[in-house]
Design a binder for these strands. Structure first.
Length: 871
DNA sequence: CCTTTCACG
DNA sequence: ACGTACGTGAAAGGC
């Protein structure tokens, strides 16, 4: 294997990282997101490539960035954002600390440095990888020079690789011809004029045909679009100049010493210090060197003495606040003492110097320790834990109002994160970095300490964000309601589910045979890749669409083909049945517990908008739209002596929109209990109410949905299979009809742009960082999010309030009936037959009174002996 | 581990 | 010109 060098286009990658990674700041207030993103890409590349040599190039004194992402308008150059500018010298220092060679040379652009180094190395017989966000570098690709372009997609970094052949495949031209294409089309962000009237399409076509601008010029007379032909001749000088500008210099005079670039050990003490200062916790784990210890560790104490333990619990009870952690790792505890729960240790903290880790043993088993914790919980003012719901089975706490779940609090403060572990909270609220080397005992202490210590700053921040009431009055009480729902579970007719699955299986086998017959070959129908090849290559079907990796075989594509090709119709049916069997019939069966019930989990800290989510299994996406799928609901049954009562809000999101926007028309329509879609159709299509056709009503319904999603003409046109123009007209008519709605939606976007977040009726915040993006697509997404989140989020708030109310009323009235499921706008209760009327009254009352809106909240309710009947 | 597809509100 | 509707989770295939 040849030796390998990795060349990194420093500014370009830093730039990508800056816009791809959400804003990060260390405790000194230094922005670190670009550095963090850069290092992540660097490590990813290093892990993949394991090169012998590594060099990072920078432009010297780059006054501006010229990357296309910066050029909002043609020909303009934005100065570098201050938040980015301040990170440039830091990344250089970090790289230096990591003993990584940096090359910069006055008067030379990074491209020329990359080009020259890569040419030099290739000529020495080396393999070269160039990491750049700038597609201009594609011209450098050869058989031995690979251009790697990272894209940051939803926090993940993906790298696309281009050897010369890949450039040809992606752009239809060779890397060398790529220069000529650019010379013709120009590049506004690089101040390359190109030839007027020649865009990417035309330029590529010309170069594909003639290979170079020179040859094209020689055959100018025969060039296809007359405009291009004329302009190429008229602007020939400009084209030549453009080509010079577009050509990366691979023979620049630079002082490059390969040995200087040899890649050694980047994990130096100096680098470690930088990473610590920048608070890159995850990256720190790459260092073997000893981390500095936090002073607080001096007060960590492992407790094995029963007498001391008693004193600790007594003191804890007298404290205002305690932080608790529960851990699975009990250290050396003999399996004999292990608790059925799987936990082996707790930690308790009730002061700066009172931090105790307690492994269970013979005298202090987990049952005993949990019992003591409960006493503490009921005695103190504030009982703080992370992920409290998880531990409630072992902690039957009675004074719930004293509980504080730091995970939930951290979620409210930023619902966009993926997790809310104590390490993150310690870093963000306490500026405390957890020692990577800490053992189970110390980690438990850290967690308990963080819980104890972070409750205050979390409270302060919740209050100043106007979310403290949301936290104490909705989220914390809901936590217990969700726990009770999980405990209750839902009964499943296991036998019936199996029969259903077997029937699906039989039909799937038939379809499989028929499909193979029609296709003339056997293949894995479940593989979109294989399916695409069979349909669109072997069978030669036309009308297929693209995805990144091949042919799209999504339902909407196949549905268009189904009328013409029997095999496609069969594939669609196969897909539907395979989904039902794998995900629902077989999938659900795996979750039936020994009590014959499924105890799915409800998650409170997942969604960006405040909705719940459901896993293990997901009980919020049980089929209903198609009859065959809907039949699954027959296996969801109430226990002996019970019936199901299912209640769902009628159009809760549109009603919330009516209330929040204050639109007079919409409010009136709901107060008069009008058919809202018909009313909308009548107004939008300018027809009398009575004459609205079914199609018009359907279309109006789509418009109403679109409004809630943050409408765009493109999205609506897609949904209704109409032109964008028509969709835009519908939207315009809609906004003419409901001007208050238009104003409200505009206000949400404006608020989000100004403040960085939007707010629900109950104060819940949804940050919208996408609005700051210089990328059009991301910004548009941000606008839709800003319009949707207050509505979806308020609906989530409302049903949460209703859930708490329903659970409370059931309990207060001494009823045995239980709330068992929530599906966003729907609640399901397993009701004892003798309690049925009371249950219905409670559901109706609590759901409809959950929020006091300018329009009525209407609840539709059904009962049945299974979920199918109750909907 | 990521992508595609598809189930729900 | 850009290429999407908002919010989720699970299964399967394939790198």
């Amino acid at each position: 294997m040849n030796e390998k060098i990795v060349l990194i286009d420093g500014h370009s990658i830093l730039n990508r990282a800056f816009y791809g990674v959400p804003d990060l700041t260390n405790s000194e207030g230094l922005h670190t997101n670009a550095i963090f993103g850069f290092l992540n890409i660097l490590f990813k590349i290093l892990d993949e490539e394991k090169p012998e040599y590594l060099t990072v190039t920078f432009d010297v004194h780059a006054p501006t960035f010229r990357h296309e992402m910066y050029a909002d308008y043609k020909g303009t150059r934005k100065p570098m954002a201050e938040e980015l500018r301040q990170q440039v010298p830091v990344i250089k220092e970090v790289l230096e600390a990591m003993q990584i060679e940096i090359v910069e040379q006055a008067g030379l652009e990074a491209d020329d440095l990359l080009g020259t180094i890569s040419r030099t190395c290739e000529e020495k017989g080396m393999e070269v990888s160039i990491i750049s966000g700038d597609r201009d570098t594609l011209q450098l690709a050869t058989e031995h020079v690979k251009i790697r372009i990272p894209r940051t997609k939803q926090g993940r970094t993906e790298v696309t690789d281009y050897y010369a052949a890949d450039v040809k495949e992606a752009y239809g031209v060779t890397p060398t011809e790529f220069i000529d294409v650019k010379a013709l089309m120009g590049d506004a962000s690089d101040n390359i004029p190109g030839v007027p009237g020649v865009g990417e399409k035309t330029a590529t076509k010309i170069i594909q045909e003639y290979g170079s601008i020179e040859n094209a010029y020689a055959h100018a007379a025969e060039i296809k679009p007359p405009r291009a032909s004329k302009n190429l001749q008229e602007y020939w000088d400009q084209a030549c100049m453009s080509k010079t500008l577009a050509t990366i210099d691979t023979r620049a005079e630079i002082g490059f010493d390969l040995e200087q670039a040899r890649f050694g050990n980047p994990y130096t003490k100096e680098a470690h210090d930088y990473f610590q200062r920048l608070q890159f916790k995850n990256l720190l784990s790459r260092f073997d060197v000893e981390a500095d210890t936090n002073a607080v560790e001096d007060h960590f104490q492992e407790v094995t003495d029963t007498g001391l333990l008693e004193r600790i619990f007594e003191e804890a009870k007298k404290s205002a606040a305690v932080g608790i952690a529960v851990s699975e790792d009990g250290g050396n505890v003999l399996p004999l003492f292990a608790h059925a729960s799987g936990y082996g240790r707790i930690a308790v903290c009730y002061g700066e110097e009172q931090i105790y880790s307690i492994p269970c043993d013979m005298d202090m088993d987990m049952g005993y320790l949990f019992g003591k914790l409960c006493e503490v919980a009921d005695a103190v003012e504030r009982f703080v834990m992370f992920d409290l719901k998880k531990y409630l089975p072992e902690l039957p706490i009675t004074r719930r109002e004293h509980c504080f779940d730091a995970t939930v609090a951290a979620y409210l403060l930023n619902p966009l994160k993926n997790d809310y572990g104590y390490e993150d909270v310690a870093r963000e609220q306490l500026h405390l970095l957890i020692n990577e080397k800490a053992d189970a005992s110390m980690r438990a202490c850290y967690e308990a300490y963080t819980a104890y210590k972070a409750a205050e700053p979390l409270t302060v921040k919740l209050k100043s964000a106007g979310m403290y009431d949301l936290f104490t009055e909705i989220e914390m009480p809901l936590l217990f309601t969700l726990y009770e729902m999980e405990q209750a579970g839902v009964k499943i007719e296991g036998e019936a589910l199996k029969v259903y699955g077997d029937q699906l299986g039989a039909r799937i086998l038939e379809l499989e045979k028929e499909i193979y017959e029609l296709a003339g070959e056997t293949f894995n129908i479940n593989s979109p890749k294989q399916l695409g090849v069979v349909l669109f290559q072997h069978m030669g079907l036309t009308g297929g669409k693209k995805t990144k990796t091949g042919f799209s075989t999504a339902a909407d594509v196949l549905e268009k083909l189904a009328p013409d090709y029997p095999v496609v119709a069969k594939i669609l049916e196969y897909r539907q049945l395979a989904k039902l069997k794998s995900t629902y019939a077989d999938g659900l069966a795996n979750f039936i517990g020994s009590d014959g019930r499924i105890h799915g989990k409800f998650h409170q800290t997942i969604t960006a908008t405040g909705r719940l989510s459901s896993t293990d299994p997901n009980l919020q996406n049980i089929p209903i739209r198609m009859e065959l799928g809907r039949l699954i609901r027959k296996v969801f049954v109430p226990k002996e002596g019970c019936v199901f009562v299912d209640a769902d809000y009628s159009q809760i999101e549109l009603r919330i929109l009516a209330h929040c926007s204050g639109d007079a028309q919409l409010i009136q329509a709901y107060r008069e209990a009008q058919d809202i879609h018909r009313t909308t159709a009548s107004q939008v299509f300018h027809v009398p109410f009575e004459e609205v056709t079914d199609l018009q009503r359907r279309n109006a319904k789509a418009v109403n949905f679109g409004i809630v999603y943050g409408i765009s003409s493109f999205g609506l046109s897609q949904d209704l299979s109409i032109t964008r123009k028509e969709a835009a007209q519908y939207i315009e008519n809609y906004f003419d009809t409901y001007p208050g709605v238009k104003q409200f939606l505009d206000e949400q976007v404006a608020h989000a742009k100004k403040n960085g977040y939007v707010v629900t009726l109950f104060g819940r915040r949804r940050p919208v960082p996408e609005l700051k993006s210089s990328n059009f697509m991301q910004r548009s997404f941000g606008e839709r999010v800003a319009m949707n989140a207050p509505i979806q989020g308020t609906a989530a708030d409302v049903i949460k309030i209703a859930m708490i109310g329903v659970a409370r009323e059931l309990k207060e009235k001494g009823l045995k009936s239980k709330l068992i499921l929530q599906v966003h706008d729907e609640l399901l209760i397993e009701a004892y037959e003798e309690e049925l009327e009371q249950v219905k009254a409670i559901l109706q009352e609590q759901m409809e009174q959950a929020a006091d809106l300018q329009v009525p909240l209407i609840v539709d309710m059904h009962t049945g002996k299974n979920w199918y009947e109750a909907k």
